[in-house]
Write a protein that binds this DNA or RNA. Structure first.
Lengths: 136, 136
DNA sequence: CCGGGAATTAGACAAAGTCCAGATTGGCGA
DNA sequence: TCGCCAATCTGGACTTTGTCTAATTCCCGG
């Protein structure tokens, strides 16, 4: 995959997002790493050289990417949300002591026996989180 | 089940927790309702008549109950943690628009095909969250 | 070059949760 | 019963994550 800045513009456009400088930088930070980042981490990466992007823009942009289905939100730690550039079906392995977050491919995993949804409700997503820690 | 205040003392003792006034009130709030409460909600319930328990104590006590295995933590909403007096195996159904959180009995649900854990790691728990919203 | 809507910004603000030093409590031995 | 001591509780300052707003900047079509 090509995650160069140049290609980010196309990616954004294909998701109906106006590609601006800041948005390209933020997309690049997430996609070139292919890892789970918090808003804080994204801000730090984007502003390494000199301050370029404000906090408000980082939060707004991440929310926009989320709405447009470009990235996913992973809620495993009460203190911060992680953003995941991998939107294909997958689950997560969370090391509670180190805070490390890894993907689990969903194609091997089967979940069966879930009860029917309450009437008038639709599933927005199913999150499966395996919490692990060092054996002592 | 008897979730009277009198019985809370025994419950706490059986989990190796010194039963104090405040701890009994907090346990009573959670267990008599059998529902998922946030720290804020616990504090509001405990202090309905007149202020009796400080914020610090509520947070400390919930953390203590958690360590001692008396309650569980449910992380579904980035803005607040819920505490669950039901520690038997079960999953959760989360209505993203209303914030309502319901239990899913785990006995009917099967999860298969999870990959082996990394060496030296043990599972602390598996959280399965079904996110739903109103169909439009 | 100009006007206007979209995007960005700094900084004030809000809410959840943590921390600390001092005050209170309650159980126990004398 | 009394006084002591460790455990517990407290108010309030503080931190962190995230939101909001009003003012500015950017960019594009004409």
């Amino acid at each position: 995959m090509d995650y160069s800045r140049d290609n980010m513009a196309g990616l954004l456009r294909s998701h109906d997002i106006n590609p601006t400088h800041q948005r390209i930088e933020i997309a690049h930070a997430l996609f070139s790493r292919q890892s789970h980042l918090s808003a804080d981490q994204v801000m730090a990466i984007v502003n390494t050289r000199h301050s370029e992007t404000s906090k408000a823009t980082v939060y707004n942009t991440l929310k926009l990417f989320l709405e447009k289905g470009l990235i996913r939100e992973v809620i495993v730690d009460p203190s911060k949300v992680f953003y995941d550039p991998n939107t294909s079906a997958h689950h997560h392995l969370y090391a509670v002591d180190t805070g490390e977050l890894t993907d689990i491919d969903a194609s091997q995993v089967q979940i069966s026996g879930l009860p029917a949804l309450p009437a008038g409700m639709v599933t927005e997503g199913i999150d499966l989180i395996v919490r692990v820690r060092r054996a002592n």
